[in-house]
Design a protein around this nucleic acid. Structure first.
Length: 565
RNA sequence: GCGCCCGUAGCUCAGUUGGAUAGAGCGCUUGCCUCCGGAGCAAGAGGCCACAAGUUCGAAUCUUGUCGGGCGCGCCA
């Protein structure tokens, strides 16, 4: 609870041997205990005393500022009852002053971050599993930008490889290929390569010519991958995922830095040519202890390169652009691969990027399966959600023109997926239930948007802009007001944790809790019809601060807040 | 088989650098629209926190084992 940190100064004066982190400020389980609480476990350990004894001692001896009305100990806790109105004013003032930076720890000032995410294979419209990567990566990018980092988002375009070669062959046969046909063509090409060795061989041959630099072959690869990439990016743009730099895999085939890597591997006797004439790394020479995954193939017998070989050059390249923070968001299926890559890079003296892993999305009916048609495409979900939302918007915002109504419906649809996906910790398999995600009820993105729309409705009805400064006296004695304000004040702590853990799911939880607390406040504490004009002014300020806080939190999640919905 | 991740209410998820009575939503039961937006609110029922042992003043949280789910161990990317 960073905002109230100065409350603890009297305790620090009392126990000068304590470090700052020894005295955390937490919310009590219920407001009946107090408005704010200090657990004494850490302090007790440092001072070698029993926690309850120390808490009692602190309650008896500390002389707090007049912000604190009462200090009582309860077991190992020191519970403080505050002058809520005075404390509320401090919180509101802090939020008002910080504005769209409220919550930011500014740990990224002057630092450059390179974040790679999504980087999906150019073979189909993205399904929810792929989109999870994009949402997590996009949200982390927003988080670090919020923290003050200069963030550069990279997208690695897999514009070559055996499967693209096969796809080019199919495209040639068909004469033309559209984005919608690509997945089908991709599946057919791979199936055919398995049963038809001549077709597979033609694919490899095409790939080899591509690597040798044959212009007409390169043009074909580019045409196919561009078609797919543009289709994918159009869908990703709907959920607000933006990329600054597109790096093409084909640029890294003959990278001179790969010679350097090979030399380093030879020096460690970790590079050899196997019986099938492939160029292989023996990772056991680099400290890898398992037998499984010990060998890493760099080049095929015909001299064409493997994915990992090009990725080495790419990873070095990203690092050499001067990243203070080099992050990559990867599916959990890439864990071993990333470990292998890191070992090879390490042997050549290059650092590996820090990886954030996400697990797969499952459906109620089990795993997603493209072949069985058991997939939820991001585009399909957005279409359905947007259509449902549009019906509600047409009723409630009838006076808006159709274009505006559609825009709002799309914002609701995006909030529904982004919140559903981002609220779950990335390392957990999550089960996506289409029906629940389309209901917009309960713990959902649209619920949070709805709370914000209510705030805006109140501010609109008030009919005049709020003053830029707070009134002298703020009234906030109601438990609903206080609980909400206390939550708002915790945003900096939530962000700090999110930055450290590279995980924004706690921010989603924060936004939901805040929206719920606001709704309770909304029902308990009339704003425009409050008992006195002064109370109305106080509550208007609480409304504004809540909206500001939710804007900042939802901004990191990539969820927009419609004026009305 | 070996390695990594996960297992919390009927279902979907929070809570995990060990700390106050394990929290939401959905579904179920019961109330609430002359009152700032019912995409809502209030209340109720529903938990050997997968199982077993251990560490600790204290374990959903840490350790080990068992069971269950996900992922990986390719001339795929």
């Amino acid at each position: 609870m960073k905002i109230f940190d100065s409350i603890l100064d009297p305790l620090r004066a009392l126990y000068p041997e304590l470090a700052g982190a020894d005295l955390p400020l937490t919310a009590p389980p219920s407001l009946e205990h107090g408005d704010i609480a200090v657990p004494f476990f850490l302090a007790a350990r440092r001072l070698k005393q029993a926690p309850p004894k120390l808490a009692a001692d602190a309650a008896a001896r500390a002389e707090f500022s007049d912000l604190v009305r009462e200090a009582t100990s309860a077991g190992p806790y020191l519970n403080l009852r505050l002058d809520r109105s005075r404390a509320a004013r401090e919180i509101l003032e802090h939020i008002l002053a910080a504005g769209d930076h409220f919550g930011a720890g500014n740990t990224g000032q002057g630092l450059h971050a390179v974040i790679e995410h999504t980087s999906i294979n150019p073979n189909a419209s993205p399904h929810l599993g792929r989109a999870r990567c994009a949402m997590i990566g996009d949200s982390i990018s927003r988080l670090f930008r919020f923290e003050g980092y200069d963030v550069e988002v990279h997208y690695y375009v897999n514009d070559m490889g055996r499967q693209i070669g096969l796809l080019v062959l199919i495209a040639d046969e068909l004469g033309s290929l559209s984005f919608d046909q690509i997945l089908d063509a991709y599946v057919r090409a791979n199936a055919r390569a398995e049963e038809d060795p001549a077709f597979a061989e033609a694919g490899y041959a095409l790939l080899a010519r591509m690597e040798e630099g044959a212009p007409e072959v390169q043009a074909k690869f580019k045409a196919v991958t561009d078609l797919c990439l543009q289709g994918q990016l159009a869908v990703l743009a709907r959920i607000g995922a933006r990329y600054d730099v597109f790096d093409r895999e084909s640029q890294y085939v003959r990278d001179p830095r790969l010679e350097q890597v090979q030399d380093a591997l030879r020096a460690r006797e970790a590079l050899f040519i196997d019986a099938e004439q492939r160029l292989v790394v023996d990772l056991s020479k680099l400290g890898y202890t398992q037998e499984e995954g010990r060998f890493f193939v760099l080049m095929r017998a015909n001299g064409s390169s493997m994915y990992g070989y090009r990725d080495l050059a790419y990873t070095i390249d990203k690092h050499q652009r001067g990243a203070d923070l080099d992050l990559i968001v990867l599916g959990e299926d890439h864990k071993l691969y990333a470990q292998q890559l890191a070992l090879i890079l390490g042997a050549a003296g290059f650092p590996a990027p820090e990886a954030v892993y996400y697990s797969y999305i499952l459906l109620k009916s089990g795993k997603m399966s493209t072949r069985q048609g058991k997939v939820v495409l991001l585009a399909d979900f957005l279409d359905q959600a947007s259509a449902l939302a549009a019906e509600r918007v047409a009723e409630q915002c009838a006076e808006f023109d159709v274009v505006e109504q559609r825009r709002i419906a799309e914002q609701v649809a995006v909030a529904a997926v982004r919140f559903a996906v981002l609220r779950v910790g990335p390392n957990k398999n999550m089960i996506f239930d289409l029906e629940t995600a389309l209901s917009f009820q309960g713990d959902t993105g649209p619920y949070i948007q709805y709370s914000c729309a209510r705030i805006r409705s109140i501010l609109r009805k008030y009919g005049q802009p709020l003053p830029g400064t707070l009134p002298e006296a703020i009234q906030a004695e109601d438990p609903a007001e206080w609980a909400l304000l206390l939550r708002l004040a915790s945003l900096p702590d939530v962000i700090e944790t999110a930055v450290i853990q590279r995980n924004t799911s706690s921010i989603a939880q924060f936004a939901l809790d805040t929206a719920r607390l606001f709704t309770t406040f909304y029902h308990e504490c009339p704003v425009l019809t409050a008992e006195t004009p002064a109370l109305t002014q106080s509550r208007l300020q609480i409304c504004r601060a809540t909206l500001r806080t939710l804007q900042n939190a939802l901004g990191i999640l990539g969820i927009e807040i419609p004026e009305r919905m």
